[in-house]
């Protein structure tokens, strides 16, 4: 009985420690599994060879992620995409790999992009990310991409931005006039933007739908990359095709990296993500089984 009670009231500090180790160990050291391979020796005899091989979890791409990938893949080179990294360091674990994967794809496809953020930390983190990736794909700031910086009020900014892109954002994050940047050539209103991608830990994508996509009907395509907790709310917009697709949490970033054929920060965290979820499920099931067994034992005692 005492054991059953203990299993229902495990000390939270033990849970914290186990979660820390579950997340940290696969991140710091790749999981290896012992494998046995049968080979032939010098005399032609079969003999087993033991080896430790890295355990790679399989990745199945969800339709929602695939739709975002296909949309970017179908854009002609030199198209213009608006990327909105609306996130801060708090959601870096999910939004960071999503932003990186999307940037990689845009750069790989030679698509121009501008970044605008409604979170003060967004422009700093995303600019650092773009600068880190640009050399790999031959991108140049101001020519292939630009950072329009942080804007205070998303609703009012977007109302002005859809009509006059350069008027609403006359300078980039570093104070250079946007009109003089080759990346903004021919971009005057939202009509000239082929795709808007909002990467967020909130429902900021709904403002893009209301104030950018609303007056433009289906001409302006939109996608979102959201944290796992925010994604369920976006399902409606995906089913109504207001969002062409959505990257859901870290899993979405893992799927995207898989599609791109790169092994980045998201893929590195795949094992940690799985292990943490298994730990949560294990303890929930453990607590419930203990509770049911305790109830059954008590019922038996009462009958006796």
């Amino acid at each position: 009985m005492n054991v059953l009670r203990f299993l229902q009231t495990v000390d939270r500090r033990l849970l914290y420690a186990l979660l820390f180790l579950t997340v940290a160990i696969p991140l710091l050291h790749p999981i290896v599994v012992p494998t046995v391979v049968l080979g032939r020796g010098p005399l032609g005899w079969l003999h087993p060879t033991f080896a430790l091989r890295p355990f790679v979890l399989p990745v199945t791409v969800s339709p929602s992620t695939l739709m975002v990938y296909d949309e970017i893949q179908s854009l002609p080179p030199n198209s213009f995409v608006l990327l909105a990294p609306d996130w801060a360091a708090g959601s870096r674990g999910e939004n960071g790999p999503q932003t990186e994967a999307l940037m990689r794809h845009l750069m790989k496809r030679h698509i121009r992009f501008a970044m605008v953020s409604f979170d003060p930390q967004g422009p700093i983190i995303s600019e650092a990310m773009a600068k880190r990736l640009q050399d790999q794909y031959g991108y140049v700031e101001g020519v292939n991409w630009t950072n329009l910086g942080f804007k205070v009020d998303q609703q009012d900014f977007l109302k002005a931005f859809v009509l006059d892109v350069r008027g609403a954002a006359p300078q980039d994050y570093n104070g250079k006039p946007v009109a003089s940047e080759p990346v903004m050539a021919g971009i005057r209103s939202a009509h000239d933007i082929r795709l808007v991608i909002d990467i967020s830990a909130s429902d900021s994508y709904t403002y893009f739908i209301k104030f950018m996509q609303g007056p433009y009907k289906e001409n302006l395509k939109m996608a979102a990359a959201l944290t796992s907790v925010m994604a369920p709310e976006a399902e409606n917009f995906v089913s109504s095709r207001q969002l062409i697709g959505c990257l859901v949490g870290l899993k979405g970033a893992i799927e995207y990296e898989h599609l791109l054929g790169v092994s980045g920060t998201a893929t590195a965290a795949n094992a940690s993500l799985s292990a943490a979820h298994v730990l949560i499920i294990f303890f929930i099931v453990l607590g419930n089984v203990a509770m049911l067994l305790e109830r059954a034992a008590r019922r038996r005692e009462d009958q006796e």
Binding site: P58, V59, T60, V248, K251, L273, S274, H277, V278
Partner: peptide
């Protein structure tokens, strides 16, 4: 939760 992870798959 399992569907959101590779281990569930």
């Amino acid at each position: 939760m399992l569907g959101q992870t590779s281990i569930g798959q």
